[in-house]
């Protein structure tokens, strides 16, 4: 396992590096790989040649947001799957993403976002957390969380949030509506350094918190009753983890819109490669989420050139078959890899 783990981490780092080079190099203006360091340097040294601006002001922030938002989604997926002890959990599936998007759309529609950069992520967090709390309460009785009730409540609240978002868009002026469309199907257009810095901050906090709880997540795979028996404060850890997961997902959603299934796919694949131990699994998920979202964005930007597909469309095209495959395996009663 140790050897396999080392290989997996090596492959992830290579994939991250390669997809980053492609993300920066490919596009309407293509930049050869060997020129990327030079152009980056030129941009930060204050030169404003076309290539330097494309690299430094457009492609680098887009890459940073893609990697960090992917990390946030995959980390929260890993943690949700651990605390709910169900491999189908994902911030999109349980409704936290749509909840976050609703808050972001409200911030823009009410004009709050124009007053402060923090308004959109804050409102997204408040609304994502509220949706997560409602779903959790609906699915939990007598200190047990029923996963099917959780998924159904997630579906219901997700469609409610999407309906409200669509209603707000319908009532908005046309330009504003086009600007807000991406919250329904996430996109990385117009990513900037402020967003990247915000994501980096909350991701660092979340990763630290999650790593401190990783042993408890390992123990939770043996069941809540067993976890309580060895001294894990199960309820407290579940609530804290859910809140932190809601935080990073909401901040990610407030910058990119709803991107589904990254949090479902990444931990699944990595659990097969890395094993169920949450310390390496969380680290690998942070990398893997970044890789998957960057590659999805590359696909979205290149398949229908010169038009671009929102990255959320690409991840859904990958994720839906994956989700159905998991359902199929569950139906056959086989091990589902948690």
């Amino acid at each position: 396992m140790t050897r396999r783990r080392a290989w997996a981490f090596g492959a992830l780092l290579f994939a991250l590096f390669a997809s980053a080079a492609l993300e920066i190099g490919l596009g309407p203006v293509s930049i050869p790989f060997w020129q990327i360091p030079g152009d980056t340097w030129a941009y930060f040294a204050g030169h404003r040649a076309l290539d330097a601006v494309v690299v430094g002001a457009i492609r680098w922030p887009r890459l940073a947001v893609a990697v960090l938002a992917g990390s946030a989604l995959a980390l929260s997926g890993t943690v949700l799957q651990a605390i709910l002890r169900n491999p189908m959990a994902d911030p999109g599936v349980i409704g936290v993403s749509s909840g976050g998007a609703l808050g972001a759309v409200i911030a823009v529609a009410t004009g709050l976002s124009a007053r402060s950069v923090a308004a959109t992520p804050l409102l997204a967090f408040a609304s994502g957390l509220a949706v997560a709390a409602v779903i959790y309460r609906l699915a939990t009785s007598a200190r047990r969380t029923d996963v099917y009730r959780l998924l159904l409540a997630g579906v219901a609240l997700s469609s409610l949030c999407s309906a409200v978002i669509t209603a707000i868009l319908d009532l908005s002026p046309l330009e504003e509506m086009q600007q807000m469309m991406f919250w329904l199907f996430g996109g990385l257009d117009g990513s900037n350094w402020t967003e990247a810095a915000m994501l980096a901050g909350v991701n660092a906090v979340a990763l630290t918190a999650f790593l401190r709880l990783s042993f408890a997540y390992d123990i939770l795979t043996t069941g809540e009753e067993h976890a309580e028996a060895v001294g894990v404060d199960v309820e407290r850890i579940k609530r804290a983890s859910l809140a932190v997961a809601a935080l990073i997902v909401s901040v990610a959603v407030s910058t990119t819109g709803v991107i589904s299934f990254v949090g479902l796919i990444v931990p699944h694949i990595l659990r097969r490669l890395i094993g169920a131990n949450h310390r390496p699994l969380l680290a690998a998920s942070a990398l893997g989420g970044g890789v998957l979202l960057t590659l999805s964005d590359l696909v979205g930007r290149t398949v229908v050139q010169p038009a671009e597909l929102n990255v959320g469309i690409v991840t859904s095209c990958l994720g839906v078959p994956f989700f159905l495959y998991l359902l199929y395996r569950q139906r056959r009663g086989r091990d589902i890899g948690l």
């Binding site: 390992d218 795979t221 043996t222 069941g223 028996a229 659990r271 094993g275 169920a276």
Partner: peptide
């Protein structure tokens, strides 16, 4: 947990450790 060790009746049979 330091004073009382309790073993519940059912242990899942798919513990991945």
């Amino acid at each position: 947990a330091r004073r009382v060790a309790y073993l519940p009746q059912f242990l899942p049979d798919d513990i991945p450790f």
